[in-house]
C-alpha cells in the first residue's frame, strides 16, 4: 500500500512541478501562439497532477485531500524528478526539457496501462492522448532550433549540456517503482536520437547522472517553487478561491 501511495505521489509531484514551471511562461512566451501552447501544456499537466493527487488522497484516506497533498507537504516529501524543478532558462532549455520529459512520460504511461491499479491505468490512458500532442509540438521545436541559425543551434547545445545529466533519473528506479525502466531507456534513447538526427544535433556521451528527486533529495530550486506555490495555503490555511 505504501509503495502504491508513494508511486502515485511521485507521478503527481512530477506533473505538478513541471506544470508550475511551464506556467511561468504565461504572458512571457516568445510569440503569442507559443505562449498559449506552453501554457496549454501546463494545464494538461496540472489536470494530470490533480487526477493523481485525488487518487493518492483516496488511497491515504481522510483527512488527506488533493489540496493538502499539493500545498502542505514539504520539500523532502516531494518526489518529483529533478529535471522538472530546474529553472526554465531560455526557450531552448524549456522546450528541450519538455521534449525529454514527454518522450519519457509517454513510455512510462504506456506501461501504466497494464497497472493492477485500475485508476492509475485510467489516468494514464486519458493522459496519453494529451502527451501525443506535447511530443509533436516539442520535437518540432527541437528540430526548428537545432536546424535553425547558428545562434539557435548554439542555444540548443547549451540546453543539452545543462539538462543531459538530469535525464538519467528517469530510468533509475526508486524502491516504490516496479515498472521495467531499462527497456524504456533504450526506447527513449532511440526516439531522442531520431529527433536529434533530424535536428542536426549530436547525442551526448554517457556521463555522470544526477538523481535524488524521487526520494526527496532535491536541488535548491524546489524550495523556492514550493515557497511561492504554497504561500497562500500556508499563510491562510484552508483559504478558498
Amino acid at each position: 500500500m505504501n509503495q502504491q501511495i508513494n508511486f502515485t505521489l511521485s507521478l503527481a509531484d512530477t506533473t505538478l512541478i513541471l506544470a508550475q514551471r511551464n506556467s511561468e511562461w504565461c504572458a512571457h512566451g516568445p510569440i503569442l501562439e507559443q505562449d498559449i501552447a506552453i501554457t496549454n501544456i501546463s494545464l494538461d499537466l496540472l489536470g494530470q497532477a490533480r487526477n493523481f493527487y485525488q487518487h493518492a488522497a483516496h488511497l491515504i484516506g481522510s483527512p488527506a485531500t488533493e489540496d493538502s497533498l499539493a500545498y502542505l507537504r514539504t520539500e523532502r516529501e516531494f518526489k518529483n524528478l529533478l529535471i522538472t524543478e530546474l529553472p526554465n532558462g531560455d526557450w531552448a532549455q524549456t522546450i528541450l526539457r519538455q521534449f525529454f520529459f514527454s518522450v519519457y512520460q509517454s513510455l512510462l504511461y504506456t506501461q501504466l496501462l497494464q497497472s493492477k491499479d485500475e485508476q492509475l491505468a485510467a489516468i494514464a490512458e486519458k493522459s496519453l492522448k494529451e502527451i501525443t500532442y506535447h511530443i509533436k509540438w516539442s520535437s518540432d521545436w527541437v528540430i526548428r532550433l537545432g536546424d535553425g541559425t547558428a545562434e539557435s543551434q548554439q542555444r540548443m547545445y547549451k540546453a543539452i549540456e545543462y539538462l543531459w545529466m538530469y535525464t538519467g533519473e528517469f530510468f533509475i528506479p526508486a524502491d516504490y517503482e516496479t515498472t521495467d525502466l531499462s527497456a524504456m531507456e533504450r526506447e527513449w534513447s532511440l526516439k531522442v536520437k531520431d529527433v536529434f538526427e533530424e535536428a542536426g544535433l549530436i547525442m551526448p556521451e554517457k556521463i555522470f547522472m544526477q538523481q535524488g528527486g524521487k526520494t526527496g533529495n532535491h536541488t535548491e530550486h524546489l524550495g523556492f517553487i514550493l515557497a511561492e506555490m504554497q504561500s497562500l495555503q500556508r499563510t491562510y490555511p484552508g483559504a478558498q478561491w
Binding site: E33, N40, I41, D44, Y133, W137
Partner: peptide, 13 residues
C-alpha cells in the same frame, strides 16, 4: 496549421 494549441485545450489554430 498556425499552432497545435489554441484558445482552449481542445482546439488548434
Amino acid at each position: 496549421l498556425l499552432s497545435q494549441f489554441g484558445s482552449t485545450a481542445c482546439k488548434a489554430l
